[in-house]
Design a protein around this nucleic acid. Structure first.
Lengths: 217, 217
DNA sequence: ACCTAAAGTGTACACGTGTTCACATTCATG
DNA sequence: CATGAATGTGAACACGTGTACACTTTAGGT
């Protein structure tokens, strides 16, 4: 929907050097959502104020508050997909993969606190459009994981449907880990315990896979 | 906090027969949260209007919007705990238990759509007080499940810590199921597929338990 | 049949909100 | 260097909001 900026921005036509306003608005929204409750609970004016921008300037960059929110969600998952794509997970032993993936993911979540806090809050409380956007991205991740897992010998006896079911369980476990990391104080060392727990749970799941028989009946 | 009504209500002092206003306010809040976005996005006045009550009457029953929200959360989990307690799960074979629990839970969620939609939305987007209340209730459920599982022979080789970890995974899986049931249209038959998936995932987890070795190092 | 506290009502106020409009500034491009 | 689109600005509007206050009504315990 009219998000026609393939160029990084500030390359439109008469783009002003002073045009960090857009980024400022996005960051302001993230800060407010993180420190206060909820995206639907903060107003356009508060975002503008926090961004050091006059309210009307908002409309120069976003049609809507919704548009801002959707942009934030897209940005989050775009960069997450890249991180997860860069680390070619399919080329390492399954055992190490669990630990490595958990650490990679946890690290990324910590480095992008505000973005993930936003997504976690809006996943269920946001607009229909936002909820759908987030849901679709998660489905995408799940399918990608299923493809990756299919390459392992340990999963050769699993049907494609069951692979999706398993990936779904794994993704949900990792999402829960993220939510928990975001809930603890940033400079609290408790993260390690959370990661250990998630790691155990994933190992448990993969143990079940060894005994699993697809469509036994 | 000033929630000193052990009596079912309307037994205070000069309680009017006409006092369904409190219930009306709670129901109105649930309806609005369900059909619109979010508890923090709906106003006291809108709730009062929906309840057929003048705005100032709200204060006769709740000190705050927060108080209303907390009451709704407490109500939800109070009755959920009762349902789960009544069905004495520890007295049936493990295999049947999975199917039975999933069906029991799904049924209950469907029967209390509005309440659960509220809880799901506020779990991460709500006030700190609300989030904490929900979190504590879930921790309680997890511990209760761990106690129940400990009675099964299949779990005799699992340490107490690991039992918590496993229960945590199970609870998260069931929560995810609830979220999904709430996301699909009420009179859509898709629920069965969701329940089947959750059931598979739980069976997978319990398969892993068979091979699990607590504190192997 | 009273008394009294709870429950319900209507008015009022100060304030934050989204959005509009006309205008000022900036700056890459012709 | 001039042009014009993108960007930034300030005043103004109609409206919904939370809450305080003084008041009326209700109904149970005595």
């Amino acid at each position: 929907m009219s998000r026609d900026e393939k160029v990084p921005y500030s390359r439109a036509r008469g783009a002003p050097r002073r045009g960090e306003a857009r980024e400022a608005l996005m960051h302001a929204a993230l800060e407010l959502v993180s420190s206060e409750a909820n995206f639907s609970a903060i107003s356009l004016r508060r975002i503008a104020r926090q961004a050091g921008v006059v309210p009307t300037a908002f409309y120069r960059h976003f049609e809507d508050l919704d548009a801002l929110g959707l942009t934030l969600i897209e940005d989050t998952f775009r960069s997450l997909r890249q991180i997860l794509g860069d680390a070619s997970l399919a080329s390492m032993p399954l055992k190490g993969l669990v630990r490595y993936s958990v650490e990679l993911f946890a690290h990324y979540v910590r480095d992008n606190r505000l973005l993930f806090q936003f997504v976690v809050k809006e996943r269920f409380a946001g607009t229909v459009a936002m909820r759908e956007a987030i849901h679709n991205e998660i489905v995408l991740l799940t399918h990608a994981l299923a493809s990756d897992l299919a390459r392992f010998d340990e999963f050769s006896h699993i049907s494609q449907d069951d692979l999706r079911v398993i990936s779904d369980l794994v993704v949900n476990t990792v999402i829960t880990l993220s939510e928990r990391i975001l809930d603890v104080d940033p400079d609290n060392a408790e993260d390690d315990a959370l990661m250990l727990r998630a790691e155990k749970q994933l190992r448990l799941i993969f143990m079940g896979v060894g005994r699993w028989e697809s469509q036994p009946g």
